[in-house]
Design a protein around this nucleic acid. Sequence first.
DNA 1: CACCATGTTCCTTG
DNA 2: CCAAGGAACATGGT
Length: 283
Amino acid sequence: MPELPEVEILVRHLDPLLRGSRIARVEILRPRTIRPLDADTFRRHLDHRVITGVRRRAKYLLFDLEPGPAGSPRLLLGHLGMTGRMYLQPPDQPLARHGVVVFDLGDRLWVFEDPRGFGHLTFEDRPLAGLGPEPLSAAFTPAAWRLSLRHSRQPIKVRLLDPSVVAGIGNIYASESLHRAGISPRRAAHRLTLAEITRLAAAIREVLEEAIRLGTSLPLNFGPANPGDALFYYGRSPDTPAAPTERFRVYDRTGQPCLRCGTPIRRSVQAGRSTFDCPRCQR
DNA sequence: CACCATGTTCCTTG
DNA sequence: CCAAGGAACATGGT
């Protein structure tokens, strides 16, 4: 499901539902999801712990834990990978086919579902240390950001996917941000002018904020009986309401007219991943 | 059968 | 030492 906006929307959804909940039992159906820790340690540390809040950093979900026995972790980290979802469901409802971890909260189940299995849960917070600025924070200024782009000859689109450059941008919003800023994804990062960097930083913020606004304005149901979510890319079924039209301006719109100038959107491959841009608006 | 897919890490190459 | 590219992880949709 995830890039920054989707994780942010999920965090806002989960926080009031999980805050104050006590974990009665943890069921690990796919041990590989718990990494790089072992499943037994994980289970032992979470038994009877209380969640005091849910936050986000980049695409990580951060679950704050009430202090437990000496040496127990204060923070649980979750990452959804490409296809992870989380939701609460009644205990008597059947579990999703790819339910990988289930937290028994007594009156409800908190389910982590992940068909492709790229997501994970851990207490290991080292990956957070290397993350770049949150694009929606005040610390994300063009002047500061410029320094991290100055030394790379890589295409700017590829740099945007590096979490140490800016946190939470994925393949969809990288293309979307560059289109909004009118910058070619192929431009070498170190050749961007300060004016372009300023424009791109603003575009990133706008694109992400718009996506979050859209998500919070929709009646979302993250439950297993509603795999559509309308908002999220993965798991849409024919009978669920379609996502709002023109949610993306370039992503996955190969050959369709650019909404600004009408030129057909082009697909290319950079660092092994699809890039979408308008050959006319983005130079 | 082929190719594609929202992410991240690790290994190899230069 | 670093930068950059590609494979790997695993499953499902078209």
